[in-house]
């Protein structure tokens, strides 16, 4: 066990953990952040997506040993911000949410994309979401949701 210090959703966090334990388990079991889902445990589905130092990563394959000193943002840290609300409501209004299990990861992937590229075209959106599997929607309405978030976000000046 080791003391691991990192910034979680804007606040300093110190946890005692084995450095090889998965960030996903620490977030869900130790810290109770269950917006982060386990869909595959092997970095293939994106349900556990979080931002690490602003970049989209799969928390199921991030060892805590790599988290020391890092800044981690989960959906819990994003959902009540203007940026998070914008994406969440755009997905909701586009009909992009069905079973909902992939959706938190899809919000994180959209956030990572829109920060880099606030006005993506369809191809760019599809590429940005390509590591997030969804079995319900066939992706069409998710893609539309990101487009809607981009349009509304621009009006609201979210990425300025």
């Amino acid at each position: 066990m080791q003391q691991i210090t990192f910034i979680l959703n804007g606040e300093k966090q110190v946890v005692s953990a084995d450095p090889s334990s998965r960030l996903l388990d620490i977030l869900r079991d130790t810290l109770g952040l269950t917006a982060v889902k386990e869909g595959c445990g092997e970095g293939e589905c994106g349900a556990c997506s979080v931002l690490k130092d602003g970049k989209l990563v799969n928390s199921c394959i991030v060892p805590m040993g790599s988290v020391d000193g890092a800044e981690i943002t989960t959906l819990e840290g994003l959902r009540d911000t203007a940026e998070g609300e914008n994406i969440i409501s755009a997905y909701a209004d586009s009909g992009a949410v069905q079973c909902g299990f992939c959706t938190p990861g899809m919000v994180m992937a959209a956030a990572a994309l829109l920060r880099e590229n606030p006005e993506p075209d369809e191809q760019e959106i599809r590429e940005a979401l390509s590591g997030n599997l969804c079995r319900c929607t066939g992706y069409n309405l998710l893609v539309k949701g990101v487009t809607l978030a981009s349009e509304r976000g621009k009006e609201k000046g979210i990425w300025q």
């Binding site: 084995d18 450095p19 090889s20 334990s21 998965r22 996903l24 388990d25 079991d29 386990e38 445990g41 092997e42 970095g43 199921c60 394959i61 991030v62 060892p63 040993g65 790599s66 020391d68 000193g69 890092a70």
Partner: peptide
């Protein structure tokens, strides 16, 4: 990055990866 080793030695939710040797995390 762990994208290979964390996957190859993965273990069920809530358990530690099953590395057969000592490891060190160098991404920092």
């Amino acid at each position: 990055g762990g994208t290979d080793l964390m996957v190859r030695y993965r273990s069920p939710a809530g358990t530690l990866p099953d590395f057969p040797w000592p490891v060190m995390f160098i991404s920092g």
